[in-house]
Design a protein around this nucleic acid. Structure first.
Lengths: 161, 161
DNA sequence: TGGGATAACATGGGATTTCATGGGAAACAA
DNA sequence: TTGTTTCCCATGAAATCCCATGTTATCCCA
């Protein structure tokens, strides 16, 4: 698949506050990614593992949709994915200053308590309780360090280094 | 002869100052490499080992993204790399005079104190505290000296020495 | 091949804009 | 009405833009 067209990726980790109304500022860089979507929204759903949220823009939903269309209509996995991804997905619109209101059930599901960490992962992002994220990050980092040799870059299109 | 501006590769080492706002001039040759990217930015993240930063242009990011997209969606390794690479990567745009602002946490992570050494490595580059870089260079050199017997050039096609 | 003119580069500081966040009014639902 | 959600404005902090300046590299012409 080719992503060089949009060139806009969810990147970096930002921690923002959640106020009493459940409002949280979406990092400006993330907003820029969905800036030109037909509906200027982000879409958020509970992760499979639980404990945090996943999200993305319209482009990501379209890709998931295309993926499911290719699966057998009576595949159990398809039904499960449909149920989990689309059934629990919320489209969240921005207010005038770039915030969204996270539904209470999602806040509880992710254990968010006044703070939310937005983690950019390229074509999608995750929303974590910052403390939980720190734990996972530590283990992810040591894993990546130990296995970095398995992450071998493919040759550049033009050849060379 | 100067290759640093050929618009293809990050080359040579340049030391520039970091001012009180965290701003640092990106070497002109490095800027030329990303000149025609859709987003004229450099992308910087902490190295796996820590102690210095890695960076590149949109092209490098796309290569990492393509690599990760090929992995199993719920492979632990994929999650770890995604988290470590994209979760900590910052896209840095140039100001009118070719500078970027390094985030404070990256400055601390790399131990940068008023100076930053940009080390060109072809398709990517590294950012070091100049003193640390000198140390690493020294140890790399002695390592190479101790192991020089393993560096045996293959014979030239035409024979000769 | 000088040597001055010109352009490119790195750097400094102040002004301006963007961003995240808080509070309250207005619209809506139960 | 009462609680909830959406919209609008205010504010402080931080990031970004803009202009000025010294310095180095490059060009051009005699």
């Amino acid at each position: 698949m080719d992503f060089s067209g949009d060139g806009q990726l969810f990147l970096s980790t930002t921690i923002n506050g959640i106020d009493a109304k459940g409002r949280v500022s979406v990092p400006a860089g993330f907003r820029a990614v969905v800036k030109n979507d037909p509906e200027e929204k982000i879409y958020v759903w509970p992760s499979f593992e639980g404990g945090y949220l996943e999200g993305g823009g319209q482009a990501l939903l379209d890709r998931y949709l295309a993926l499911l269309e290719e699966m057998d209509p009576y595949d159990d996995a398809r039904a499960a994915f449909e149920q989990t991804i689309f059934g629990d997905t919320r489209g969240l619109a921005f207010d005038g200053t770039g915030r969204v209101t996270l539904p209470k059930d999602l806040i509880e599901l992710a254990g968010l308590d006044g703070k939310a960490a937005f983690v950019g992962l390229g074509s999608r992002f995750e929303i974590w309780n910052p403390d939980r994220l720190a734990e996972r990050k530590a283990s992810a980092r040591s894993f990546a360090r130990d296995n970095k040799k398995s992450l071998k870059l493919p040759p550049r299109p033009g050849g060379g280094a």
